[in-house]
Design a protein around this nucleic acid. Structure first.
Lengths: 244, 244
DNA sequence: GAGTGGTCTAGACCACGGT
DNA sequence: CCGTGGTCTAGACCACTCA
């Protein structure tokens, strides 16, 4: 098979190749975990030289969409950042190790998207969304209170499952039940005094400081899939970053 | 001139080239703002092909040590993140724009390094350090309270200047007076209730939540140059990050 | 041993910045 | 115009994985 590359001819070939490969990942022509064709195969398909093909793949590796394994092949990377709360909170079990916290769905409802949610999900105001209220616990102790909003259109399959069956991680559920793969995310952190509702949920003193993590999860095509607001106690918060 | 590359022969050539160029930036053989030799010149000096030279330079660009300008050359990048507090705090002046806050040195002293400071600076316990206590203000209003520790050995020139002459940015001062260039940094964020001392400095209610940013500043050779702890009001805190 | 990605070469021509 | 970095080619050989 021989692919004509449809993009703007003025763009460099490696860029057009990059875009073409990215599009095939986005439309799940190749799925997470799949091997993409070998470099020599791509050379034939796209009539480019090996160096050009490698440059396009290099870019996708740098962007986190592909992973290379010498001798094995190049694979579509499976994002695994549901445990990203560890990046912000030093939660650990009583035994000291890091475990996936228990996820307990407190409420599930369909509603018109509140203004802020519609804006975050880039949907028209009033679009129907699924709202989940969720508590995450370790050793029976509450760690995080989460509000999760999903566009109903893409995630209506979730309404047909008992919330007790949701499990502790939602992203695998989104993938299995709704065919929606989370590829990247943007997170915003702020600090605030805890509200009465969340103080009760998290067993904190009224007015205690909490860190709020707002996460917009995106698909491979960078369409917003989920907007989530997680609150945790500020004394458990710790974040490390390297800057240049 | 022809450079023999001294590194482990088992390493790829582009890696050895990368290390060699990085070393020359670290020892200030080339300084911030300088152009490094052209690609064709490096090809001759190192007896490598253009592709290999480009790969080494690509890495250094990705690491933030070099910048390329087509038609002009490749330059040692000047790190400019003293304004990085804007990454964590949405400080702005009354007029709404972002200005460099005033820096006011409250105290300067020489002391044996406290344990945590010695560890951060990777110095033996009890090494003499310079400690600066500094307040940063915008429109006369205190924004940040900072404690800054510097190894006395490298920064003793600072003891000879009146602290009123320090100016609002310290890194240019380090460069001009002490020949120390900050190339990168690691920052750790935590939240805590403000102490009485800092509450008074920052004009906050006792016990109000503050965000603490601990920054370890490193030279091009990744030696620790400065350790700094900055406290600011949590209600001014906001941080955005993209994850994959 | 066959097939994969990793390293490296020695050129060519293009696009951009300054003179 | 010349010199810079940017793109691209068509190979060669090496290192690793797996049957």
């Amino acid at each position: 098979m021989n692919y004509a590359i449809s993009h703007d001819q003025r763009l460099p070939l490696y860029q057009r190749l990059h875009d073409e490969l990215a599009a095939r990942i986005a439309d799940q022509h190749w799925r997470a975990g799949d091997a993409i064709p070998t470099e020599t195969e791509l050379v034939k398909q796209f009539e480019a030289s090996i160096g050009t093909v490698r440059k396009a793949i290099d870019m996708l590796v740098a962007e986190g969409m592909l992973e290379r394994f010498q001798g094995k092949g190049t694979f579509v990377r499976r994002a695994r950042f549901d445990s990203s709360l560890f990046r912000f909170f030093r939660f650990q079990s009583e035994a000291g190790e890091r475990r996936i916290p228990e996820g307990r769905i407190l409420r599930r409802e369909v509603m018109p998207a509140p203004t802020a949610v519609a804006a975050a999900l880039r949907q028209p105001a009033g679009t129907e969304v699924i709202h989940l209220s969720r508590l995450r616990l370790l050793d029976q102790k509450p760690l995080l209170a989460e509000s999760i909003w999903l566009p109903k259109e893409k995630f209506s399959a979730l309404l047909e499952i008992d919330t007790a069956e949701f499990g502790d991680l939602l992203y695998p559920l989104y993938e299995e039940r709704c065919g929606q793969v989370v590829a990247s995310a943007e997170e915003t952190l702020i600090a605030e005094a805890v509200s009465d509702v969340h103080a009760r949920l998290l067993q904190l003193q009224p007015g205690a400081p909490v860190i709020v993590v707002e996460r917009l999860a995106l698909g491979y095509d960078r369409q917003p899939l989920e907007w989530r607001r997680s609150r945790g106690p500020a004394d458990q918060f710790r974040y490390h970053v390297e800057i240049r």
